[in-house]
Nucleic acid binder design. Structure first.
Lengths: 247, 247
DNA sequence: CGACATCTTGACTACAGTCAATACTAGTGG
DNA sequence: CCACTAGTATTGACTGTAGTCAAGATGTCG
């Protein structure tokens, strides 16, 4: 099957929606010019696999729009999502040729790609890029560890509540709305993707969603439109500290 | 309770056992001098808490000897280990004052500490250190994601087998022995610590250890001395690809 | 030897998984 | 417009793995 990805016309970095959060956040205008020279855009449709584990990757990229997931698969088909890539998140690893995980577009996705070798060169020359990349990697590591607590110790109900609160919160921060009181958002994941994320089966996800609805913690309009009447009520179900912890 | 940690006499970096794997691995001799100026050693006894989550940390450090664990605790006492620090691993996060996790010495531990502010200065000035730190952080992220697959999708038996194979392998690499065929090593973790690592209860850990013994996958001499008659047999129990995957 | 940690084993329970039937939704074509 | 299909989601009945509670066993150190 031929790839459906295609290139898009060059866009100006200064207009970029992720300009101040992505790996290029700290760059000055002359540094941006170097990046402009090696960047190109690619678009993927929802459901498309961007990279298979084991593939050779000749680029790294920032997610500009949409949601993608990193997934590990065992021989017998058991799957675990190990990362969720949102706008401004970084994809790929400098100095590594081969992808470690499957990367799948959960929604339509736009990537800002950099050819890997020139990008590696930039990293060793340019402190602003490598410092920002370090910072972002440390944040991802913190998120991965938070997730390990969820996978290892939380109940199914707590897992669902935690996932909803995470998505609600980042959705709010994107729209610059407060994440308290009444909150509404679109769920960009299928029940199966939620199950892969949470280490559950899709039946258990469905059951717990129904239970949270029955208990008026969430309301559903259609399958994907979520309304949370009281954000504190949801937070009580996550098992986390009431005050949001130290992160 | 007063801290039992104490400082030790200065040691020379060139004699350091982790010289070529730690955050200082890439440093030239003049760069080492800068590190020497801000470093000091600290020793902790097995069982001692090195840092509490929420504590202010005024240093970062490399583990020189011993094993320490990073643990997250929920309000109701449920605990999940989220990191295992071995010799050469890095502790602490530049640009962060407050610790995110409890750090506990599993065995006696020796740290090579750097005062945080001067170290941050070094990172922004010195590409060798920040590049090495980025590389180590990316490795830790990969390990965390491997661990997420274990927590989310593996059975209790597979979890135990995976943990034993991980410890066996790094023990072998430390002693520069092959990790195949007949292998023997000391388990540096209690049953409870294993349970915290694997997202299980200590009873389940004990039962599965007994089961693996019954099936001749492992032999026990005392509680902590593990012998593996055939490493491939153990690998078959981990649920991982036979060929060891792409990592 | 006795005291305390750690570990093992047993009986029972419960939470989430499995298998299967049914419902809902959106898209396609007659 | 409706019928048909395919993908997604819900619900039910049953099973099984790991958790809970509790009693003993083993090991270590004073």
């Amino acid at each position: 099957m031929p790839s459906r990805q295609f290139s898009l016309p060059q866009q100006d970095c200064v207009d970029c929606p992720i300009r101040h959060r992505a790996v290029c956040a700290r760059c000055e205008s002359d540094e941006l010019e170097h990046l402009e020279a090696i960047k190109y855009y690619r678009k993927y449709e929802a459901g498309q696999t961007i990279i298979w584990a084991g593939d050779k990757m000749n680029f790294v990229a920032s997610v500009v729009e949409g949601v993608a997931s990193l997934t590990q698969t065992m021989e017998d088909g058991r799957r675990q999502m190990v990362g969720l890539l949102l706008p401004s998140d970084f994809l790929g690893r400098p100095n590594r040729e081969v992808a470690s995980y499957d990367v799948v577009a959960t929604t339509d996705v736009m990537l800002c790609c950099f050819r890997r070798l020139p990008f590696q060169q930039l990293i060793s020359d340019n402190a602003h890029i490598s410092q920002r990349l370090l910072e972002m990697t440390l944040d991802e590591l913190d998120a991965a560890r938070e997730w390990m607590l969820l996978l290892g110790r939380k109940t199914a109900r707590e897992k669902i509540a935690s996932l909803l609160s995470i998505i609600a919160r980042r959705d709010a921060s994107l729209k610059e709305l407060p994440s308290r009181g009444h909150v509404a958002f679109d769920l960009p994941l299928t029940r199966e993707a939620m199950a892969d994320y949470l280490g559950l089966t899709l039946e258990t996800v469905s059951r717990q969603m129904s239970a949270l609805k029955r208990d008026d913690v969430i309301h559903l309009g259609g399958k994907r439109q979520i309304t949370i009447p009281d954000f504190d009520l949801l937070m009580n179900e996550t098992g986390d500290d009431a005050d949001g912890g130290m992160l």
